Simulated assay, not measured.
Amino acid sequence: MKIGLISDTHGYINYINKAMEKLNNTDMIIHLGDNVKDVKYIKLKYKNKIINVKGNCDITCTVASEKIEIIENKRFLITHGHKYNVKRDLLNLKYKAVECRADIVLFGHTHVADITYENGIWFINPGSASLPRNRINTVAVLELNDNKINSYIIDI
Results as ranks from 00 to 15, higher is better:
K96W: 00
K40H: 14
M28E: 11
R101N: 15
H80R: 07
I156R: 01
L106E: 04
M1S: 12
K2E: 12
K40Y: 15
K83V: 12
Y152N: 03
E143G: 00
G108A: 11
N56D: 12
I42L: 04
L142V: 05
L5R: 09
A64P: 05
Y41H: 07
D89V: 02
Y117K: 12
S7M: 06
T116G: 05
K18M: 13
K22A: 14
N150Q: 12
I70G: 06
L93E: 06
K67M: 11
G120D: 07
I13D: 02
N125D: 06
E69I: 11
L44C: 10
K22L: 01
N119D: 15
N85R: 10
V39F: 08
H111R: 05
L131Y: 03
N134R: 04
I70V: 14
N119K: 14
C61K: 07
R133S: 13
K43G: 04
A19P: 02
L142R: 00
N147D: 15
V36A: 10
P126N: 06
I6C: 05
G33L: 08
T79I: 02
R101G: 07
K49M: 08
L44F: 15
I6M: 05
A129H: 04
L144N: 02
A102N: 04
D27T: 05
K40R: 13
T62G: 15
L106C: 00
I13A: 03
V63G: 02
Y41W: 02
L93M: 04
G4V: 01
I136Y: 12
V53E: 09
D114C: 14
H10N: 08
K54C: 11
D89A: 09
K37Q: 12
K40C: 11
I71P: 07
N14Q: 13
I30Y: 01
D38N: 00
N119C: 07
N35C: 03
N147G: 03
R101W: 04
N73F: 04
G81F: 04
R75C: 00
G108N: 05
N92Y: 15
A19V: 09
I115A: 06
I13K: 12
K96M: 05
C57D: 07
